[in-house]
Design a protein around this nucleic acid. Structure first.
Lengths: 261, 261
DNA sequence: AGAATAGTGTCTTTCAGACAGTATAAG
DNA sequence: CTTATACTGTCTGAAAGACACTATTCT
């Protein structure tokens, strides 16, 4: 590589080693999934949903025995995002899933192995994608935890608690302001399902007239649309209820909100 | 440093150099400022405001002669955020200013000097803070450009065009959804000033009944409050208008928006 | 008086929020 | 017939949006 070190602003150091360089830049991924568990009741009902995080128990130094985020070091030939995508695929065996950048974690001393600058991502995957991992990789213990368990009961490696907390806040924010809810729903869904998904991720979200508001206010038009068959007849589902409910899908429109209007 | 490389997930490399490590992790800063220019009219009026970006013309390889974001390499003893803060202070000579993380830029080959992973920030500073830089540093040419100039007319170094574009989008988003407008305003301001600041950053923002909405709708209560003197009498300003206008200040409350409610 | 900016009155349409009532289907 | 979920009717008060009108000050 040609080097010319007269620039007084940015001094790289790959050959001269005049300056210390980082020992590695891993991509760590907070992998969220929404589990679905049948409720054993007499009548049809929505399943119980829970937001969970996948963690891996470390087997070696440092932080041996503690739970950590899956991750891997970035290579020179790829971008950080590509590294995260590769890692996500390695963990799930699948290409799918929503992957988004979260932030950088670089506090000095955060990793005893050296100067390690973590780039954090979060992913939304489906539950079955994680079963692959649990089966395939016998080398490591894999666990699915609720956020509360992960944040309060587990011993977490490095600063991974901070990362998980930041990811949790971000996903809550995004759940209310973007249409990522679609990542947790089938193509067609009922409004009760949507409401449940939102509430699972953001328990504070309460909206007594949810169905009414979605269906009848003009400013919400365009986020969702009714699903109809070829003849234009509305499509229903009674999978989770006695009375069939109208099915909806997301459009690709998401409104831009403002605190001033 | 003790090293134990049995972990098959994360392999650092500071001593063994078995793996290639990055050649440097700089913090690059998109420094925005809102310039104020008096309009030469007969009557009192609001000044002309413009959103500008500070850039530095590079003097040496690589990208010599091109305009680039100010930035500097992170040291092992500091976090990325601290590096950005240090850089901001070096550029302005002042500790103040709003500094926020933007994202990571790591496309392979983005910097001909090697494997350089940029961490981008954006800062909101006041115009006078930049004058310091222009005077003090005779070594480098400093320029203030509008976003349009920066994005369309200038030859920009590395992938700094992408970074500036991302920063611009983010600041527009933040202007509508948070109260960063306060970074561009004095402690006390009139609603016309606020409206002008928002429109300067987000030209699409149009709100004919702006004053009415801010002052009379309950959901906006709490973002702003009227400024009053010790006796509880409303404080006015006629700095920019014939008729005195009520002064406001931001509270520290910012509402959380949702596309569903 | 005229100009320029700050704000108010008023009217219509839409939305929010509450809560009772009806609709559809399963057991 | 009961129960459980999915809606709809209806009413009140708040907010949006438009536009004419008044208010305060400077020249």
């Amino acid at each position: 590589m040609v080097m010319n070190m007269t620039d007084n602003e940015q001094k790289p150091n790959s050959n001269t080693k005049k300056y210390r360089t980082p020992d590695g830049v891993p991509a760590d991924i907070v992998m969220f999934t929404l589990t679905k568990r049948e409720r054993k009741t007499v009548t049809k009902t929505l399943p119980i949903r829970e937001l969970k995080v996948m963690l891996i128990r470390r087997r070696s130094w440092p932080c041996a025995g503690m739970w950590a985020l899956p991750g891997g070091f970035c290579r020179e030939s790829e971008s950080i995002y590509d590294a995260a995508k590769r890692e996500l695929k390695e963990e799930t065996g699948v290409d799918g899933g929503h992957l988004e950048y979260l932030g950088v974690y670089s506090t000095p001393g955060r990793d005893p192995r050296g100067w390690i600058i973590s780039q954090a991502f979060y992913a939304l995957v489906e539950e079955w994608m994680l079963e692959h991992r649990q089966a395939a990789d016998d080398a490591e213990e894999v666990g699915l935890f609720t956020i509360e368990e992960a944040l309060e009961e587990l011993e977490l490696a490095f600063d991974h608690r901070d990362i998980i907390l930041d990811a949790y806040r971000k996903i809550q924010h995004q759940m209310l302001q973007t249409t990522i809810a679609k990542q947790f729903l089938p193509e067609h869904f009922t409004l009760s399902e949507l409401y449940q998904v939102i509430q699972t991720v953001v328990p504070e979200f309460k909206e007594p007239n949810f169905i009414r508001k979605i269906t009848s206010t003009r400013s919400r038009q365009g986020i969702l649309e009714e699903v109809r068959d070829e003849n234009g007849k509305p499509l229903n589902s009674n999978q989770y209820s006695q009375r069939p409910a109208q099915l909806y899908r997301f459009t690709d429109h998401a409104p831009l909100l403002s605190i001033y209007t």
